[in-house]
């Protein structure tokens, strides 16, 4: 069963210990769009993102309730690893596998999921992913280099390549530029716009300008509540909520 939405979230609540971090949020993310979740830090947006691929499974103090569908599939009906196979993720800080080469970082997903038969096929996947992540030109001559030797921005693009090498339905990005400088951020944003052609992207950002630059839809979260959601243009030009207006003008 296929849905016209890549992600549907219905009355999601998340509690961490006694703290109610996400309060009854419902969202729909159309396919092949960049969907930004913005809000000040501490508003719960990363918490929300990590519930989409059930990363909270590992933390018993985090209680998630509500429904989440990926391409029409109820995430609670499938195993966490099957879900994560469909939902790639890029983290706040670049986290390549530091002991592996650039090539192996990208190849490890396809390799362990046995997605290819011949070495040449794997080479092709790696090349495709690195190109999509706008990293290929910088590393193509030295794919054997250790990932830890790359710059922060390159490492983050490597993490994107690693995630998309599995051709996921959805790509989650948790403030992927927060640890990067201006130039690296620009390159990364370019690659995100390019990636939209193949994937649905949900990106969390605390920077409204970034959301305005790259997203098609935007949700504004404040204090664990969904304040406003809609096409980026509308939200930024005609915010319905006073708080949203303040936030996009940089007053919150």
């Amino acid at each position: 069963m296929s849905s016209k939405y890549a992600i549907e979230i219905e009355s999601l609540n998340i509690k961490i210990g006694n703290k109610h971090v996400i309060k009854d949020i419902s969202l729909k993310v159309p396919k092949n769009t960049v969907f930004a979740i913005m809000g000040p830090s501490g508003s719960g947006k990363s918490t929300l993102l990590r519930s989409i691929n059930k990363l909270w499974d590992l933390y018993p103090e985090v209680k998630v309730s509500g429904k989440i569908y990926i391409d029409g599939i109820d995430v609670n009906e499938i195993e966490a690893h099957e879900l994560r196979r469909m939902v790639g993720m890029v983290f706040q800080r670049p986290n390549p596998f530091p002991h592996m080469s650039i090539y192996d970082n990208v190849a490890i997903g396809p390799r362990l999921h046995k997605l290819y038969k011949k070495k040449e096929e794997l080479d092709k996947i790696v090349e495709w992913a690195l190109k999509k992540a706008y990293l290929w030109d910088e590393v193509k001559d030295d794919l054997k280099r250790k990932a830890s030797k790359l710059s922060g921005g390159q490492q983050q693009r490597l993490c994107i390549a690693r995630a998309i090498a599995l051709k996921p339905k959805v790509l989650l990005m948790d403030e992927p530029t927060s640890a990067l400088d201006v130039v690296s951020t620009k390159r990364l944003e370019e690659s995100i716009v390019e990636l939209k052609k193949d994937f649905t992207i949900v990106i969390v950002t605390h920077n409204p300008q970034q959301a305005a630059r790259i997203s098609d839809y935007v949700a504004f979260i404040y204090n664990g509540e969904l304040i406003e959601v809609g096409p980026t243009k509308d939200v930024f030009t005609r915010p319905k909520h006073e708080l949203t207006e303040k936030y996009v003008l940089g007053k919150v």
Binding site: N53, L55, L58, A80, H81, E82, L83, R84, R85, M86, V87, G88, M89, F91, R93, N95, P96, F97, P98, I108, G109, L112, H113, C159, R162, A163, L166
Partner: peptide, 20 residues
């Protein structure tokens, strides 16, 4: 975060620990 990086690739926790 490194372990989560492996998990996010849809790998089982044991695969992350013993292979990745």
């Amino acid at each position: 975060v490194v372990k989560e990086g492996g998990l996010a690739l849809g790998l089982k926790y044991s695969t992350v620990l013993f292979k990745v």
